[in-house]
Design a protein around this nucleic acid. Structure first.
Lengths: 218, 218
DNA sequence: TCAGTGAGTAAGTAATTACTCACTTTGTAG
DNA sequence: CTACAAAGTGAGTAATTACTTACTCACTGA
């Protein structure tokens, strides 16, 4: 079975409405995977928490791995592509400065991640491990998020708001920091919210760093 | 057994010189843990790769968990405290500017991590999962690395090289970016080296961000 | 009313897991 | 050479693992 067929199969799980039992199974799996990791969670435990039988898991999902993917894959489309078309576009149009865009973007995505924090934790924790999964999903993530952010960067660069260095370099620094930001807040520290001030601090750091401003003209 | 006793027990493993077989076991464990993760690696597999018997593992280490800790704990002292006393001090003394310090620091720590890349990967991957381990080690890491970095920040702040905001805010931004830097390069991308240019880019970002320099006096 | 269908499950199974025990081999001090 | 301790191991074990099978039940359309 090719990767594409696998993806379509996984996505088909959500197309038919889930029964109550199936919903309980998915919720139990999300909770346990986020808490203890995929490998340390047995199907027996998932069934117990969901108050269902183990066989029900396999009837619907076929394997433990597909249950994991049925959680991860559809959510990626929520974390990232939605981010591209429905988030990045409107946010950048509504903000005249890159600084404003950045603050709105970080706030918007933070709220999104917090609302789906356990799923986000599962994705981060498992993506680090699973080489195959990583290799299959990163091109997708890159296309969905990075390439659109690059366009926004180009836009504001033309307006003279951003430094004149290659866009890929700006993007790389930006993604490194944002990745660190989300990972530290929502995976390591497991925060429930992000204060306005924290976002302001992050934006200031991204825009101006920690050095004093030198008086140079452009 | 209290945490302290556990730590002392773990540290005692390295105090006596390892036999060749024991060395092979540790090397096999590092390799497999880094590649597939602790939970996905069986003691049988470690024994096979090490060309030793499973019983030898348990004779020396008692449990699979202690084998993991015997890899992680001593290395932390190499990654972090050495960093504090033997790295941060000399580097900051040898560099008159914070920018110079930062470049030297990033280069020095990158080389250190690359030389022990698999161990670094094991630490990152397991620290994300294991709540207990994380809670036990973070105060230690913080004391070793963060508090010393804070002093360096204070030093250069007094010299007027860094912006005048609370040190903990500077530190937080710095650690977020550096954490993202090391994780993306050496865990996600599994890089073998870091080009001079990459470090320069990172330093520039940390110092000045991606916004254009505004002409404001201080 | 009842055949057909999908949801759900109790009770398995073979394989794998971390770990143990009784034993042999090896290195070394006297 | 020998005695003894440490290093090393083959052959287990009970528990857990992901997964299967053969079944019941609840519902629905004709």
């Amino acid at each position: 079975m090719t990767p594409n067929n696998i993806f379509n199969e996984i996505l088909s799980f959500q197309s038919v409405k889930l029964t109550m039992k199936q919903e309980r199974i998915v919720q139990a799996a999300i909770q346990l995977f986020a808490e203890k990791g995929y490998s340390n969670t047995s199907t027996a435990e998932i069934a117990k928490v969901a108050e269902a039988s183990e066989a029900s898991i396999f009837k619907k999902y076929g394997s433990k791995e597909k249950l994991l993917l049925s959680i991860i894959v559809p959510s990626l489309k929520e974390f990232f592509p939605t981010m591209a078309d429905e988030v990045i576009g409107p946010i950048s149009e509504a903000n005249s400065t890159f600084e404003g865009f950045l603050a709105a973007f970080l706030k918007n995505r933070s709220e999104m991640v917090i609302a789906n924090k356990e799923i986000f934790q599962v994705i981060v924790k498992e993506l680090i491990y699973k080489e195959d999964l990583k290799n299959e999903l990163t091109p997708y993530i890159f296309e969905a998020a990075a390439s659109r952010l690059a366009r926004v960067i180009d836009l504001y660069k033309e307006r003279g708001e951003l430094i004149d260095i290659p866009t890929h370099k700006i993007l790389k620094s930006l993604l490194t920091f944002i990745g660190g930001f989300f990972t530290s807040h929502f995976v390591l520290l497991n925060n429930e919210s992000v204060a306005e001030e924290v976002i302001e601090d992050a934006v200031r750091f991204i825009m101006h760093g920690i050095g004093i401003k030198t008086t140079s003209m452009n």
